[in-house]
Write a protein that binds this DNA or RNA. Sequence first.
RNA 1: GGCGGCAUAGCCAAGUGGCUAAGGCAGCGGUCUGCAAAACCGUUAUUCUCCGGUUCGAGUCCGGAUGCCGCCUCCA
Length: 495
Amino acid sequence: MSLKIYNTRTKKKETFKPLRAGGVGIYVCGITAYDICHAGHARSAVVFDVIKKYLQYRSYEVTYVKNFTDLDDKIIKKAISEGVSRGISEIADRYIRTYNEDMDALGVDRPTISPRATEHIDGMISLINTLLQKGLAYVVDGDVYYAVEKWKDYGKLSGRTLEDLMAGARVEVNEKKRNPLDFALWKASKEGEPWWDSPWGRGRPGWHIECSVMSQRFLGDTFDIHGGGEDLIFPHHENEIAQSEGASGKPLANFWIHNGFVRIKGEKMSKSLGNTFTIKDMLKNYHPEVLRLFMLTSHYRGPLDFSDDSLDEARLGMDRFYATLKNIRDVPASEMDYSQIFLEKLQGRHREVCDRLAVLSEKFLEAMDDDFNTARAIGYTFDAARLINGYMTDEQFTVCPETLFVLHRAKIYFEEVGRILGLFLDEPDNYFCRARDRKVGESGLDVKEIECLIKERVAAREAKDWEKADEIRRLLAEKRVSLKDTPAGTTWEIE
RNA sequence: GGCGGCAUAGCCAAGUGGCUAAGGCAGCGGUCUGCAAAACCGUUAUUCUCCGGUUCGAGUCCGGAUGCCGCCUCCA
């Protein structure tokens, strides 16, 4: 089996081969730290987190670099509007902190390296110098521009030619530029803006140059995977290629991966449309793994439409998984020893379940190998849940060494899948309590009162006083509390 | 205007030219259950927006039409 990845550069799925056997270098363009993160940031982060986790599962040593843009017009604007004393770094620090909180909550692993643009100004100046020496850039009044006409491959990532771009030019008029498509590598600072000394006077870097410098610094001239949201294909990544390849003469990245956008009611979610919702808001209403499951049940390259209904649906799916996990865990394993059970010795249903689980496990990996098809992979995982539920609710089911062996296998299956997707990491009881407690908080109900009534009902049921039991059920139902009688006792939740 | 993507059941969503078009949610029938819930079993697309073409064979490839969306301006 080999991993295939869709490469934006070639518009094809290609077999993945790392430059260095056993190791993979990934660079993903990170956030500009000037505001609270929204669902779009979450999607991108989760997608690349799963890609990273899967590569690690496949035994690659992954170096994952994701930058923070901590120097930018929007940050400057925010600092000015807030009259912040320490300027842009205070703004950037604040939003980097909230970003990290959000990512930790979502179960997104921290990157291997998270460099900040302002830490690499020297590198940017030296890269711009190289581009000037190579005749790919020019200086005008303290600004430095990249001359796109001098770079033969300009447009190769986004599939556009200079003529295409000219034809559709919606570019601001800037008389300093020789070609309207030229972009700034360095900008002379205006009054009140942060600045750094450079051979071209006091100024600050353009947007694209930081990624060229930081990726080269940590991953080398050429590395394996470069990723980001699909909106970055043009101009950001196109310009990165022009800068990096123009300077080094070597390909920047072998694979370009771009995730699709988050939408609301069919429209792109974006700050300019004002239809964003933040990660923090979503986490108030949903378990983080519900959000992950939702994002991973459609393919990373396609659009993903967020709505309360679709998130609620994802929650039901997640409930299903955790119910299965709870059932497995609640089997009284006690002291029963199954160390003498081996797959080869198993027969009948036990053997059949193990075999089918093994097939599902294989199919899961096949799906992941096919351009990280998490949607299909999760489909097989639902099959596995049904398989195990069926096994456990069968009337022949009894707790015995064979059963424990099979359930142990199931547990391993879910752990393996969960490690790759970043799911099933919570304790089942905790998962359900979190959901319930959240609702209790909203409804203002008294937990002690509810549990007291449940105790009464349990007693009534033991006395086979069905009338009283039903009366209590009805009483609680009026408060939107629904009861479930299971072999392990009565549980409750809020509708 | 230039470039590109998408269109699959009531809804969400996979689908790599060839066995019966994954999976989830909702619905319906059943098993189980004191009732209920969960779970399980069965069922729900003779067909993949429409029209042509290539092929022994197309949801999948090609051309066209329609509709929706994105990039070309900061954006994940």
